[in-house]
Design a protein around this nucleic acid. Sequence first.
DNA 1: TACGTTCATGTGAACGGTCACACACTCGTC
DNA 2: GACGAGTGTGTGACCGTTCACATGAACGTA
Lengths: 374, 374
Amino acid sequence: MKRSAPEGTGAPANQAPTGDTTRAATDAHGHIDAPAGRTSSPGRPPSLRDVARLSGVTYQTVSRVINDSPKVRDETRLRVLAAIEQLGFRPNGAARALASGRTQVLGVLSLGTSAYETPSTLEGIESAAASAGYTVTFAGTRAPQLAAMRKAVHALVDQRVDGVILIAPLISIDVDALPLPPSLPVVAVEGAPGSRVSAVVIDQVGGSRAATKHLLGLGHRNVWHIAGPQGWFDSRGREEGWRSALAEAEIEPPPLLVGDWGHTSGYEAGRILSGLAEATAVFVANDDMALGLLRALHEGGRRVPEDVSVVGFDDLPEAAYMQPPLTTVRQEFFEVGQQSIRLLLDQIDGRTSAETRPVVPTRLVLRQSTAPPF
Amino acid sequence: MKRSAPEGTGAPANQAPTGDTTRAATDAHGHIDAPAGRTSSPGRPPSLRDVARLSGVTYQTVSRVINDSPKVRDETRLRVLAAIEQLGFRPNGAARALASGRTQVLGVLSLGTSAYETPSTLEGIESAAASAGYTVTFAGTRAPQLAAMRKAVHALVDQRVDGVILIAPLISIDVDALPLPPSLPVVAVEGAPGSRVSAVVIDQVGGSRAATKHLLGLGHRNVWHIAGPQGWFDSRGREEGWRSALAEAEIEPPPLLVGDWGHTSGYEAGRILSGLAEATAVFVANDDMALGLLRALHEGGRRVPEDVSVVGFDDLPEAAYMQPPLTTVRQEFFEVGQQSIRLLLDQIDGRTSAETRPVVPTRLVLRQSTAPPF
DNA sequence: TACGTTCATGTGAACGGTCACACACTCGTC
DNA sequence: GACGAGTGTGTGACCGTTCACATGAACGTA
């Protein structure tokens, strides 16, 4: 029933491509047509062949037109474009992909999208991809279990995406264990160093050093740190920056507090710190935890910045409106997204990019949550 | 270069259909090859035919196996599965889509993804879609201009997605003006009432009424409102709920303040309200603006909730950690995502869902930003 | 013994494009 | 006046599946 033979359109094949303007005019479909719609389709959307038939050329010529081939006479092109418009023709991506071997789709593999950073990075990815003519598909996993990740990879591979961006900032994720075809271009965001994939990294260490040194420079004798969960590249980098700045000042680091990125864990760390009179400066691994800390400090009767100075990391939009406005380290997530696409397209197009591991800078944004001690 | 004739296998054009088991056995390239990987592929990923050849059946049988057809002998199935495993075969989605007419991909059309609500909804969409065997593709626009939206729609249509979820809470967006094929299932999240698409809506009005009545119930003589930008369904619904609650109490609504959802606009509205002694209760259209308001009130020396009561909308994760913890109206974004997928799948599978316009409830979450006046 | 059934597998034709090449024309050139 | 070089357009094969149907073997049953 589906596969019916092409059948008597009644129109004899025209030999002279007259390009008759009169015809074009009379047939101008600019008029307000019946409410039903412009394409009186029998069911299946129009194909190259339908357009070809209507405009009196072969499907190949139509193909040339939709691909902007220069080898088409202007007159012909116009005729074809009119037919395309009239029929509401849109090329079939699946057929294209099958024939050409390229899908013009990029895959993003991530571990959940509710954190602020991910969607923001995604925006960068999406916009950069779009301007290069690519669409973006997501395959998420909430759990960083290998099995789930494999499944997500399969979804992408089955779709034959032209490239993959891997947002998997967990140290435990072994990129090489993922069932990615060796020929598939891959770019990792944060992490997976040493493996075959190139990566975009954020200058975590630099930002953390700047934050810690800022507090030290204010005159604090020591700086406490609320770290992110173990196993994250981000946590590690930030802790490292903090340690290195302290080491440089020859200060023995105080005990490390560890959170899980969430507000609550920052709050809990804050309960502990509230009781410690010597804790006059705290560098928190992200703004969310910093918010929790701020609240705990407030409840504990310790004023910020008079009694305790706080520096966060991320520069979320709300950081400027916290109580007090939070001094923090800004990360350019959008740029991360853009850069990762750039890198990926380089791989796809066989360009050998000079830098395989671009570092996106961070910068300290001073607001009102820090002050000299006393 | 790509289309090289099948060559140098030494095998003369075989007249016997490929299913020759003997040949398959001798020619089995399944031998343990160099550590490089399991598939000694010449370039192109393995296809049904490759698997068929290796396992001594026809491509059709392999097709049956990967589609779990019951009409395959167990022994055969095992043999095929082994070959699939050995070759690392993965079905080609494009070819599948072309032949079957279904892509198993759902499209999401939105206007940017950095707001909290969108990614959260997206998560719901993604997880529900995944468990139904669908992948999700995004087509974003930052600008709600029709031209940009059309382009995004085209990206989805060209991909031949099986259905579309439209996140476009702007009243001005005319769904029917989008170049969506009439046969394509579409579900809108919030809005676009009256058009051919079904929609998932959030009980904005109910939530707002609850918020306003709560403030009134506390003894406030009046309730001010900081609304979202004009042109959003959300803004409208929240304003409506507020108005209706006031009307019910026979209170003349105070002048409306209008923001743009951002922290800053809430802050600015707050500067105004700080100077107004009679403004003892404020219902803000979202938590972000509420945060700005809180900050402005603090700077203006007005205590919350002692001098001014504040209720927000959304229940962002940070609401509980604001200063003071914010009483707000909770929206279940994740559920919105799930519901929209459910509705969409109903359309795709031709199920006639009982409800075409499910309403996701909201609920007032009491915290510490409200109190009786004085 | 012949014969319809059932189960397992094979066959050929789509699906809607792209690719490499072949085929007319129309020129300018010697 | 035949010839090589563009142009623009057509032709056939192929991409990797699914679909509808054909075929063949094993099995009762008349």
